[in-house]
Protein backbone atom coordinates (compact mmCIF):
# COMPACT_ATOMS: atom_id res chain seq x y z
CA UNK A 1 0.00 0.00 0.00
CA UNK A 2 3.06 2.21 0.30
CA UNK A 3 3.35 3.63 -3.20
CA UNK A 4 -0.04 5.34 -3.06
CA UNK A 5 0.96 7.28 0.00
CA UNK A 6 4.25 8.27 -1.53
CA UNK A 7 2.46 9.69 -4.57
CA UNK A 8 0.12 11.65 -2.31
CA UNK A 9 3.03 12.99 -0.29
CA UNK A 10 4.79 14.18 -3.42
CA UNK A 11 1.76 16.06 -4.69
CA UNK A 12 1.39 18.91 -2.18
CA UNK A 13 3.63 21.97 -2.33
CA UNK A 14 3.68 25.22 -0.44
CA UNK A 15 3.94 28.86 -1.35
CA UNK A 16 7.22 30.64 -0.77
CA UNK A 17 7.32 32.31 2.66
CA UNK A 18 8.05 35.98 3.21
CA UNK A 19 11.78 36.17 4.13
CA UNK A 20 11.21 38.86 6.76
CA UNK A 21 8.43 36.88 8.38
CA UNK A 22 10.62 33.76 8.33
CA UNK A 23 13.60 35.60 9.86
CA UNK A 24 11.40 36.83 12.71
CA UNK A 25 9.93 33.33 13.01
CA UNK A 26 13.39 31.85 13.47
CA UNK A 27 13.93 33.95 16.56
CA UNK A 28 10.53 33.09 18.02
CA UNK A 29 11.00 29.42 17.15
CA UNK A 30 14.41 29.17 18.79
CA UNK A 31 12.95 30.73 21.91
CA UNK A 32 9.66 28.87 22.13
CA UNK A 33 9.98 25.47 20.43
CA UNK A 34 13.43 24.13 21.30
CA UNK A 35 12.39 22.40 24.50
CA UNK A 36 11.47 19.52 22.18
CA UNK A 37 12.56 20.38 18.61
CA UNK A 38 16.19 21.14 17.78
CA UNK A 39 17.74 24.55 17.24
CA UNK A 40 16.93 26.09 13.81
CA UNK A 41 14.43 23.32 13.05
CA UNK A 42 16.82 20.41 13.48
CA UNK A 43 15.82 17.18 15.22
CA UNK A 44 15.47 17.62 18.97
CA UNK A 45 15.37 15.44 22.05
CA UNK A 46 11.63 14.86 21.89
CA UNK A 47 10.39 16.01 18.50
CA UNK A 48 11.28 15.61 14.85
CA UNK A 49 13.22 17.85 12.51
CA UNK A 50 11.06 20.33 10.65
CA UNK A 51 13.17 20.93 7.57
CA UNK A 52 15.42 18.66 5.52
CA UNK A 53 13.91 16.13 3.17
CA UNK A 54 11.51 14.04 5.16
CA UNK A 55 7.91 13.63 4.11
CA UNK A 56 5.64 16.00 5.96
CA UNK A 57 1.97 15.66 6.71
CA UNK A 58 1.51 19.40 7.30
CA UNK A 59 2.62 21.49 4.37
CA UNK A 60 0.36 24.48 3.81
CA UNK A 61 0.61 27.68 5.87
CA UNK A 62 -2.83 26.97 7.33
CA UNK A 63 -1.95 23.39 8.35
CA UNK A 64 1.26 24.57 9.99
CA UNK A 65 -0.56 27.41 11.70
CA UNK A 66 -3.18 25.05 13.12
CA UNK A 67 -0.61 22.53 14.32
CA UNK A 68 1.36 25.23 16.14
CA UNK A 69 -1.65 27.11 17.48
CA UNK A 70 -3.80 24.16 18.51
CA UNK A 71 -1.17 21.46 19.03
CA UNK A 72 -1.45 17.92 17.62
CA UNK A 73 -3.81 15.80 19.74
CA UNK A 74 -2.40 12.50 20.91
CA UNK A 75 1.19 13.64 20.56
CA UNK A 76 3.53 15.64 22.75
CA UNK A 77 2.90 18.70 20.56
CA UNK A 78 0.99 21.14 22.80
CA UNK A 79 -1.16 24.16 21.91
CA UNK A 80 0.72 27.42 22.18
CA UNK A 81 -0.08 30.66 23.99
CA UNK A 82 1.86 32.64 21.32
CA UNK A 83 0.05 35.36 19.38
CA UNK A 84 -1.31 34.72 15.89
CA UNK A 85 1.43 36.90 14.45
CA UNK A 86 4.14 34.88 16.18
CA UNK A 87 2.56 31.62 15.04
CA UNK A 88 2.49 32.93 11.47
CA UNK A 89 6.15 33.87 11.81
CA UNK A 90 7.07 30.36 13.00
CA UNK A 91 5.04 28.80 10.17
CA UNK A 92 6.92 31.00 7.68
CA UNK A 93 10.23 29.96 9.24
CA UNK A 94 9.36 26.26 8.98
CA UNK A 95 8.30 26.74 5.38
CA UNK A 96 11.58 28.51 4.69
CA UNK A 97 13.44 25.43 5.96
CA UNK A 98 11.65 23.43 3.33
CA UNK A 99 12.02 26.12 0.70
CA UNK A 100 14.05 25.75 -2.47
CA UNK A 101 16.91 28.08 -3.33
CA UNK A 102 14.60 30.41 -5.28
CA UNK A 103 12.53 31.00 -2.14
CA UNK A 104 15.38 32.38 -0.04
CA UNK A 105 17.46 35.52 -0.21
CA UNK A 106 20.95 34.59 -1.43
CA UNK A 107 23.46 37.43 -1.23
CA UNK A 108 25.68 38.08 -4.27
CA UNK A 109 25.77 39.88 -7.57
CA UNK A 110 23.67 37.89 -10.01
CA UNK A 111 24.92 39.72 -13.11
CA UNK A 112 28.51 38.83 -12.22
CA UNK A 113 27.33 35.32 -11.39
CA UNK A 114 25.87 35.00 -14.86
CA UNK A 115 29.13 36.11 -16.41
CA UNK A 116 30.97 33.45 -14.40
CA UNK A 117 28.41 30.85 -15.46
CA UNK A 118 29.09 31.60 -19.12
CA UNK A 119 32.81 32.37 -18.72
CA UNK A 120 35.29 31.39 -16.02
CA UNK A 121 33.08 28.68 -14.54
CA UNK A 122 32.79 26.95 -17.94
CA UNK A 123 29.33 25.81 -16.86
CA UNK A 124 27.83 26.25 -20.33
CA UNK A 125 30.05 23.54 -21.75
CA UNK A 126 27.54 21.11 -20.26
CA UNK A 127 24.56 23.11 -18.93
CA UNK A 128 21.89 25.25 -20.53
CA UNK A 129 19.91 28.12 -19.06
CA UNK A 130 16.97 29.32 -21.13
CA UNK A 131 18.29 27.85 -24.34
CA UNK A 132 21.94 28.95 -24.00
CA UNK A 133 24.62 26.37 -23.30
CA UNK A 134 25.55 22.72 -23.57
CA UNK A 135 23.22 19.74 -23.30
CA UNK A 136 25.25 16.91 -21.76
CA UNK A 137 24.29 18.04 -18.24
CA UNK A 138 20.91 18.98 -16.77
CA UNK A 139 19.14 22.15 -17.95
CA UNK A 140 19.46 24.60 -15.06
CA UNK A 141 16.69 27.01 -16.07
CA UNK A 142 14.66 25.87 -13.03
CA UNK A 143 17.46 24.74 -10.71
CA UNK A 144 16.52 27.24 -7.99
CA UNK A 145 12.98 25.93 -8.15
CA UNK A 146 13.78 22.34 -7.28
CA UNK A 147 17.07 22.33 -5.34
CA UNK A 148 17.33 23.67 -1.83
CA UNK A 149 20.12 26.18 -1.26
CA UNK A 150 22.30 23.66 0.59
CA UNK A 151 21.84 21.14 -2.21
CA UNK A 152 22.78 23.75 -4.79
CA UNK A 153 25.89 24.65 -2.82
CA UNK A 154 26.80 20.96 -2.40
CA UNK A 155 26.35 20.35 -6.14
CA UNK A 156 29.04 22.95 -6.81
CA UNK A 157 31.44 21.91 -4.08
CA UNK A 158 31.30 18.18 -3.35
CA UNK A 159 31.47 15.16 -5.68
CA UNK A 160 28.05 13.65 -6.32
CA UNK A 161 27.03 10.63 -4.21
CA UNK A 162 24.78 9.31 -6.96
CA UNK A 163 24.41 10.32 -10.57
CA UNK A 164 20.91 11.41 -11.55
CA UNK A 165 18.99 9.35 -14.07
CA UNK A 166 19.70 10.36 -17.63
CA UNK A 167 23.20 11.67 -16.87
CA UNK A 168 25.17 8.53 -16.08
CA UNK A 169 28.42 8.50 -18.08
CA UNK A 170 28.90 5.59 -20.48
CA UNK A 171 31.53 4.39 -22.92
CA UNK A 172 30.38 1.94 -25.55
CA UNK A 173 32.62 0.23 -28.05
CA UNK A 174 30.85 -1.11 -31.14
CA UNK A 175 31.70 -4.36 -32.91
CA UNK A 176 33.54 -2.33 -35.54
CA UNK A 177 35.64 -0.58 -32.89
CA UNK A 178 33.87 2.78 -32.83
CA UNK A 179 33.91 4.32 -29.36
CA UNK A 180 30.81 6.18 -28.22
CA UNK A 181 31.36 8.40 -25.20
CA UNK A 182 28.46 10.17 -23.51
CA UNK A 183 25.68 9.88 -20.99
CA UNK A 184 22.89 7.31 -20.88
CA UNK A 185 19.55 9.00 -21.44
CA UNK A 186 17.75 5.67 -21.06
CA UNK A 187 18.56 1.98 -21.13
CA UNK A 188 17.24 -1.44 -20.37
CA UNK A 189 18.45 -4.98 -20.93
CA UNK A 190 18.25 -4.67 -24.71
CA UNK A 191 19.05 -1.14 -25.79
CA UNK A 192 20.73 2.13 -24.78
CA UNK A 193 19.92 5.66 -25.82
CA UNK A 194 23.13 7.67 -25.54
CA UNK A 195 23.73 11.40 -25.76
CA UNK A 196 27.29 11.69 -26.95
CA UNK A 197 29.81 14.24 -25.69
CA UNK A 198 29.47 16.14 -28.96
CA UNK A 199 25.72 16.43 -28.56
CA UNK A 200 24.59 13.66 -30.90
CA UNK A 201 22.11 10.92 -30.11
CA UNK A 202 23.16 7.32 -30.65
CA UNK A 203 20.56 4.58 -30.52
CA UNK A 204 22.29 1.29 -29.75
CA UNK A 205 21.24 -2.28 -29.17
CA UNK A 206 23.29 -4.03 -26.51
CA UNK A 207 24.04 -6.81 -29.01
CA UNK A 208 25.74 -4.23 -31.26
CA UNK A 209 28.26 -3.41 -28.55
CA UNK A 210 31.53 -5.20 -27.97
CA UNK A 211 32.00 -3.52 -24.61
CA UNK A 212 30.03 -1.15 -22.39
CA UNK A 213 31.61 0.54 -19.40
CA UNK A 214 30.13 2.99 -16.94
CA UNK A 215 32.71 5.35 -15.43
CA UNK A 216 31.81 5.77 -11.76
CA UNK A 217 32.54 9.49 -11.64
CA UNK A 218 29.87 12.02 -12.55
CA UNK A 219 30.90 14.42 -15.33
CA UNK A 220 30.09 17.28 -12.94
CA UNK A 221 33.31 18.70 -11.48
CA UNK A 222 33.34 19.59 -7.78
CA UNK A 223 35.28 22.18 -5.82
CA UNK A 224 33.94 25.39 -7.38
CA UNK A 225 34.39 27.05 -4.00
CA UNK A 226 38.13 26.57 -4.54
CA UNK A 227 38.31 27.16 -8.28
CA UNK A 228 36.58 30.52 -7.85
CA UNK A 229 37.23 33.30 -5.36
CA UNK A 230 34.77 33.32 -2.49
CA UNK A 231 33.11 36.39 -3.98
CA UNK A 232 32.82 34.78 -7.41
CA UNK A 233 31.41 31.62 -5.87
CA UNK A 234 28.78 33.58 -3.98
CA UNK A 235 27.83 35.48 -7.14
CA UNK A 236 27.45 32.22 -9.05
CA UNK A 237 25.36 30.74 -6.23
CA UNK A 238 23.15 33.83 -6.20
CA UNK A 239 22.69 33.67 -9.97
CA UNK A 240 21.81 29.96 -9.94
CA UNK A 241 19.45 30.33 -7.00
CA UNK A 242 17.40 32.81 -9.06
CA UNK A 243 16.86 30.34 -11.88
CA UNK A 244 13.27 29.38 -11.36
CA UNK A 245 10.23 29.07 -13.57
CA UNK A 246 8.05 29.94 -10.60
CA UNK A 247 7.26 33.66 -10.32
CA UNK A 248 8.91 35.26 -7.30
CA UNK A 249 6.54 36.55 -4.63
Amino acid sequence: MRFLLILCAAAGMFAAPDPKLAAAGRIVYNRACTMCHGLDGAVGDRAPALGAQRRYLRRSSQELFNAIKLGIPGTLMPPTPLSDLEVNQIAAFIQSLRATAADVEVPGNTARGEAIFHGKGQCTECHTIRGRGGIIGPDLSDVGGYLRLEELRAALTTPKESIPRGFRPVRLTTASGEVIDGVVKNENNFSLQILTRDGGLKMMLREEAREITYPEQSLMPAGYDKKLTSEEFQDLLAFLSRQSRRPRP
Binding site: L5, A9, A47, P48, Q53, R54, R55, L57, I72, P73, G74, T75, L76, M77
Partner: peptide
Protein backbone atom coordinates in the same frame (compact mmCIF):
# COMPACT_ATOMS: atom_id res chain seq x y z
CA UNK B 1 13.34 5.12 8.00
CA UNK B 2 12.04 7.80 10.33
CA UNK B 3 9.72 7.79 13.30
CA UNK B 4 7.67 10.40 15.11
CA UNK B 5 4.52 10.44 17.20
CA UNK B 6 1.28 9.90 15.34
CA UNK B 7 -2.35 9.74 16.40
CA UNK B 8 -5.07 7.46 15.16
CA UNK B 9 -7.95 9.38 13.61
CA UNK B 10 -11.11 7.52 12.66
CA UNK B 11 -12.31 7.83 9.09
CA UNK B 12 -9.42 6.38 7.13
CA UNK B 13 -6.41 8.60 7.68
CA UNK B 14 -2.80 7.42 7.52
CA UNK B 15 -1.55 6.16 10.88
CA UNK B 16 2.05 5.52 9.98
CA UNK B 17 4.23 7.06 12.70
CA UNK B 18 6.15 8.66 9.72
CA UNK B 19 7.94 6.96 6.81
CA UNK B 20 11.00 6.43 4.66
CA UNK B 21 13.00 7.71 1.75
Amino acid sequence: NTKSADTFRPGGFPFMGTGYI
